[in-house]
Write a protein that binds this DNA or RNA. Structure first.
Length: 383
DNA sequence: TCTGGGGTCCTAGGACCC
DNA sequence: TCTGGGGTCCTAGGACCC
């Protein structure tokens, strides 16, 4: 999709036609999406909102409507599945479609691409761009060049002709840091990387990344379209973090926030029927330096109280003397199905404990809403 | 009043085991 | 009488993606 969050936000707002629009959070938020008028002023995704407003003071700023975006995303993916069952959603606004089996039925790649675009536009009133190639990653790179509202086809025989003039930063997996490293080697274009011995690239980037980038420079990506409907990779971790509106140095505020985040994470675990063994605390200081501390528990848990207790112990273990914190986060890794966890009661431990209490809270929440029952610490004193 | 939130994967060192 | 080799797990940091 083109400028997805912004397109969704404006499709029922004719009053915003011809105006620059930015979707993003307030305060310390970043730009989630900006329409092409705002981009004309230099606004980009992931840019701090403060900078975006400065670049484009006339822009209409809209907070994201995640529920609506998810709904539109689901509808678009359903349209894709009418063309082929081989649809891999990469994110809410992007998917790989393997149409190699649809040519006889639906025509040339260009025709399929245009059909997809018109069906999305007719049904959802938003535009999208399509890249077509023999491999997913090259198709993805082509789709970038198709934006906005276009199609770029890269025939098999023209892959290197398409790739080699591009900046190395356009390769999937090459971000700012890797781009700098390649520049230091004197490699600026994809073609430069392609014509450098793979060992040289690997020495600079490490074995795995180096090999991948070098292969990709020749259009070899090793990826296949993997529809989510089949058995997809199990989740490996789940987490939540929060950037404070203002930097915080009160350990009590931190402890409360860690409880809120732990509850969010373990709530997700419980509804997914998962539990995890490793709890990771993330701290970002006022100067943006970020550290993590983790602890692996004897057995996997989905219990809020245990995750919070662990996160708090990790925090106290840092021995921070009222350092100013910008962000705290909690993540649980090493996920396994809860059915595989066989809890060993400790000597003196009650048979029914927090796990049962929290499950009861989940049921109350499902029935009466999120405000029905909460830890006292998370009840705002305004009541 | 620069820099969100949710993820994945890789690297590297050390402990530990056989 | 100067210290192997292979494997797994844990921890911490960092890069990248959307």
């Amino acid at each position: 999709m083109d400028a997805f969050y912004a397109s969704v936000a404006t499709r029922d707002r004719p009053d915003l036609d011809g105006r620059p629009v930015i979707v993003g959070g307030g305060g310390r938020g970043v730009v989630l999406s900006a329409n092409y008028l705002a981009r004309g002023s230099g606004v980009r995704s992931a840019m701090p909102m403060t900078r975006a407003r400065r670049l484009c003071p006339d822009a209409v700023v809209i907070p994201p409507d995640f529920a609506l975006v998810e709904q539109v995303s689901g509808s678009v993916m359903a349209l894709f599945r009418q063309v082929t069952p081989l649809v891999e959603a990469v994110s809410l606004d992007e998917a790989f479609l393997d149409v190699s089996g649809a040519a006889r039925r639906l025509g040339t790649p260009e025709e399929i691409a245009e059909r997809l675009r018109s069906v999305v536009h007719d049904e959802q009133r938003i535009t999208c761009s399509v890249g077509v190639a023999a491999t997913p990653v090259v198709a993805k790179m082509a789709s970038r060049h198709a934006k906005p509202d276009g199609v770029v086809v890269v025939p098999s025989g023209e892959v290197t002709a398409f790739l080699h003039p591009l900046d190395v930063g356009e390769l999937w997996g090459v971000g700012e840091r890797t781009r700098e490293q390649l520049h230091r080697l004197g490699l600026f274009t994809v073609g430069d990387v392609a014509h450098t011995p793979v060992q040289t690239v690997q020495r600079a980037l490490g074995g795995v990344l180096g090999a991948r980038v070098h292969a990709l420079a020749w259009g070899v990506d090793g990826r296949v379209v993997t529809p989510q409907s089949g058995p997809h990779a199990p989740e490996r971790s789940t987490g939540a973090d929060h950037t404070f509106d203002r930097d915080v140095d009160d350990p009590d505020v931190v402890a409360t926030e860690l409880l809120r985040l732990s509850a969010r994470v373990t709530g997700r675990l419980r509804s997914a029927g998962l539990a995890g063994r490793t709890v990771t605390l993330r701290i970002r200081f006022a100067d943006f330096t970020t550290i993590t501390r983790s602890r692996t528990l004897p057995e996997a848990t989905d219990v809020t109280v245990e995750v919070h207790r662990t996160a708090l112990a990790l925090f106290r273990g840092l021995g921070l003397q009222r350092a100013r914190l910008r962000l705290v986060g909690v993540r649980v890794e090493g996920l396994v199905p809860r059915s595989q966890v066989h809890h060993q009661l400790q000597l003196g431990e009650r048979e029914h404990g927090w796990s049962e209490a929290e499950r009861a809270m989940d049921r109350a929440t499902r029935r009466f809403g999120a405000s029905a029952v909460r830890p006292a610490r998370l009840v705002r004193h305004t009541g």
